[in-house]
Simulated scan of single mutants.
Amino acid sequence: MKRFLTDHQIASLVEAIQSAESLSTGEICVHIDSTTDDKIAEAAFEVFKELCKDKTAEKNAVLFHVNFEQKYLTIIGDTGIHEKVHQSFWDHLHDYITSEFAKGHFYQALKSAILETGKELKKHFPANGKNHNELPDEITFS
């Protein structure tokens, strides 16, 4: 893990999550998976179900599931955000992140994606003074 993100960068990503979430009622989760199982897509959805699915009032949680070792990234949005945001947004974000990962820019790619997701959440789920944190902001690991 240390070769991809430092402890300081992880703390900074948590701050980025908090900043991005302050713009809306949406929630952003980041999970770093270090398993070597070849069923990584299924694992990503299981993490989504455990951490995010149906855990927000507006069903507007987003999960970034990353496995650096397997060079795998998936972005999963709950039904509320998925209904509002076109697939092209997620495709563009995925392409940006993976191209930056290929250059070794792991921290900056994740931070930019988190902040961009926050802007998109704000468009569809503005806080309007009712922004209580429904999910923990820390980055999870397995």
Results as ranks from 00 to 15, higher is better:
1 M>R: 04
1 M>G: 12
3 R>M: 11
4 F>C: 13
4 F>Q: 10
6 T>S: 15
8 H>P: 14
10 I>T: 03
12 S>K: 14
12 S>L: 12
12 S>F: 14
13 L>M: 14
16 A>M: 11
18 Q>S: 02
20 A>P: 07
23 L>I: 10
23 L>D: 05
25 T>W: 12
26 G>R: 01
27 E>T: 09
29 C>M: 11
31 H>G: 09
34 S>M: 10
36 T>I: 11
36 T>S: 11
37 D>T: 12
38 D>N: 09
40 I>L: 10
40 I>E: 02
41 A>N: 05
43 A>H: 05
44 A>Y: 02
45 F>C: 12
46 E>I: 07
47 V>W: 00
47 V>E: 01
47 V>R: 02
49 K>P: 14
50 E>T: 15
51 L>V: 06
51 L>A: 00
53 K>W: 11
55 K>P: 08
56 T>V: 04
57 A>K: 10
59 K>F: 15
62 V>H: 02
62 V>D: 06
64 F>I: 13
64 F>V: 13
66 V>H: 01
66 V>T: 04
66 V>M: 07
68 F>A: 05
68 F>T: 08
68 F>N: 09
68 F>M: 05
69 E>I: 11
70 Q>S: 13
70 Q>K: 12
71 K>N: 14
71 K>G: 12
76 I>M: 04
77 G>T: 08
77 G>D: 01
78 D>G: 01
80 G>Q: 13
81 I>H: 02
82 H>T: 00
82 H>P: 00
82 H>M: 03
85 V>G: 00
85 V>K: 03
85 V>R: 02
88 S>K: 01
89 F>G: 00
89 F>W: 01
91 D>T: 10
91 D>R: 00
92 H>P: 07
93 L>D: 12
95 D>C: 06
96 Y>Q: 04
98 T>A: 07
99 S>W: 12
99 S>D: 15
99 S>M: 09
103 K>H: 11
104 G>H: 03
104 G>V: 03
107 Y>E: 14
107 Y>W: 09
108 Q>R: 13
109 A>Q: 09
109 A>L: 10
111 K>I: 02
122 K>M: 13
123 K>E: 13
123 K>A: 04
123 K>S: 08
125 F>K: 01
125 F>M: 04
126 P>K: 03
127 A>H: 09
127 A>R: 07
127 A>I: 12
128 N>M: 15
130 K>V: 04
131 N>R: 12
132 H>R: 06
132 H>F: 14
132 H>Q: 08
133 N>R: 02
138 E>G: 02
138 E>Y: 06
139 I>Q: 01
139 I>W: 01
139 I>T: 00
141 F>D: 05
